[in-house]
Simulated assay, not measured.
Amino acid sequence: MAINSNNKKLTVVIGASANPQRYSYLAVSRLTAHGHPVVAIGLKDEKIGDTPVIKEHPAVEAVDTITLYLNPQRQQAYYDYILQLHPKRIIFNPGTENPELEQLAIKNGIEPIEACTLVMLSTGQY
């Protein structure tokens, strides 16, 4: 199946881990397999396939999606960073739902979505 290059969505994965048992690992792997450029941010400098996982919070332009793999308490340290990236949407994967961040997103013109990135990719909804 050919993927339309116009549908590439720059995605920042927050809470990325090189542990193959983690959903964030699967998300980074599947996003790149679908041709989406990924910036993976985690607690350690490591790699998921060819994608580096970095500890820094780089300035990234034209972010389409932020997908979260951090519990709500750990997300608080990222609020300012997430909002300054001005993504079109934030995906709150199961276990990451956060009404406070969802309200901040709405106030900043960002669409909050409570969904699973992996399911969205597998069903063509990403």
Rank of each mutant, 00 (worst) to 15 (best):
N108C: 05
N108S: 12
P87L: 02
Y78D: 12
R89S: 02
A77C: 10
N98Q: 11
A105S: 05
N93W: 08
L104P: 01
Q103T: 12
L70C: 07
E114W: 07
N93S: 06
N71F: 11
T65D: 08
P99L: 06
T96M: 11
G109E: 08
L85W: 06
L68Y: 07
H86W: 00
E100W: 06
P87Y: 01
I90Y: 02
R89M: 04
K88N: 12
E114N: 14
R74L: 14
E97R: 08
K88Y: 08
T96G: 12
Q103G: 03
H86I: 00
L70D: 04
I91L: 07
L85I: 08
F92G: 04
L85V: 10
I66M: 10
L101I: 03
Q73E: 15
R89Q: 12
P87Q: 02
A77I: 12
N108I: 03
E114R: 15
E111V: 13
A105M: 02
Y78Q: 14
P72S: 10
H86Y: 00
Q84S: 15
K107Q: 15
N108R: 10
I91C: 05
N98G: 02
I106R: 15
L70A: 06
L104M: 12
Q75M: 09
K107S: 14
Q76I: 13
T67D: 07
